[in-house]
């Protein structure tokens, strides 16, 4: 098999998708989290500030999901088809939530009426929670494994998705995004809203730590295949170690009000958890809970080598561009949010 710097091409593309999903989590994670916390703010001005803190960037953040979806389609079309047709109903609800979230942000500021704004506030908050929860649910099911038969067909039903482990992962995702969003908002605000958020950040971090501990235990007990890689590569134990150290660091930096550093650490912990997930999966993408032999590996699902090479080239040209203008946009809107006539 053709290799590039010692890794075969499907593995490279697996890394690209992993990178995109991590990028999506780190970026859209904070605006989804901010959305999930939206109803905690009571004053109209606070809500506007919170909305405008993510205003210029949320759309760009969501694009990472579109790119990740495209990358999955391009690199592993088999998985793309199996995954999306298997999760048909959850994905449809996910799409509708994405629509409602986008229009809530866009429409809310267009009219001054209190009922109008309240309606979109609720829609924005609920859809943000829904999206996060559904993402977590899909993730949880992927970790846990799906009942897939030899023909890569799903043999479960809708209730299969709502197993306790997946629901736990969904809550963990929600808690992490809320923490991430709260830290982001506290960096972007001042005065009374800032004071309120410092309390919120503390509570979010407690919620996340609780979920983190529960998830770690549940994974060790109920999902042994996720930890198998560690038996062969004990050096990988450094990752959970980093995750725990990071977690302690988040708490320490929040207590010390060093929010930018806390934000970096919450990005690191998100990356760590996703890397652990990727190591647990590799070289499979969809694990069959019926019979491990029915799992779909990256080699069975990959596009042709030629296609992968073209796409790696596209990614190599495109990624620096995307990163450079993402940085440019974030730099342009650095500092605390101020409301003006063009604001939401």
């Amino acid at each position: 098999m053709e290799t590039l710097l010692g890794l075969d091409l499907p593995t490279w593309w697996f890394l690209v998708i992993g990178g995109l999903i991590t990028g999506y989590g780190v970026l859209d994670g904070f605006d989804l989290g901010a959305g999930a916390l939206h109803l905690f703010f009571n004053k109209e001005e606070s809500r506007r500030l919170a909305l405008n803190a993510i205003g210029p960037v949320w759309d760009g953040n969501e694009v990472w999901l579109v790119i990740a979806g495209g990358a999955l389609f391009a690199g592993f079309p088999l998985v793309y088809g199996v995954l999306f047709s298997t999760f048909y109903i959850p994905f449809m609800l996910f799409l509708v939530s994405l629509i409602f979230r986008a229009i809530s942000i866009e429409f809310r500021s267009k009219e001054p009426w209190a009922w109008w704004r309240k309606m979109w506030d609720i829609s924005y908050c609920v859809s943000s929670i829904f999206i996060t929860f559904l993402l977590g649910l899909v993730l949880g099911n992927l970790i846990h494994g799906l009942p897939i038969n030899k023909e890569h067909e799903f043999t479960g039903n809708l209730l299969t998705f709502f197993n306790p482990y997946a629901i736990l992962i969904a809550f963990t995702t929600l808690s992490l995004f809320m923490l991430h969003g709260a830290i982001y908002l506290v960096m972007k605000t001042e005065n009374r809203l800032y004071a309120k958020l410092t309390v919120l950040v503390n509570n979010c971090s407690k919620f996340f730590i609780l979920c983190f501990i529960l998830t770690s235990m549940a994974t060790l007990i109920y999902v042994p295949h996720m930890t198998q890689a560690f038996k062969h590569h004990p050096e990988l134990f450094i990752l959970p170690l980093i995750a725990v150290l990071t977690l302690l660091n988040i708490k320490r930096n929040i207590d010390g009000r060093r929010y930018f550093i806390a934000f970096l650490f919450s990005a690191i912990i998100m990356s760590c958890l996703l890397i652990l997930f990727a190591i647990g999966l590799y070289p499979n993408i969809i694990i069959s809970s019926t019979d491990p032999a029915h799992s779909i590996s990256i080699y069975a699902a990959a596009s042709s080598n030629k296609s992968l090479k073209i796409m790696l080239l596209i990614a190599a040209i495109g990624t620096p561009l995307v990163i450079s203008y993402t940085v440019f946009v974030f730099w342009t809107f650095r500092g605390k949010v101020k409301l003006n006539e063009m604001s939401y």
Binding site: G70, A71, S307, M311
Partner: peptide, 10 residues
């Protein structure tokens, strides 16, 4: 897929 990936990224 490669067209879609190029669309997303570019």
């Amino acid at each position: 897929g490669s067209a879609l990936a190029a669309e997303g990224i570019f």
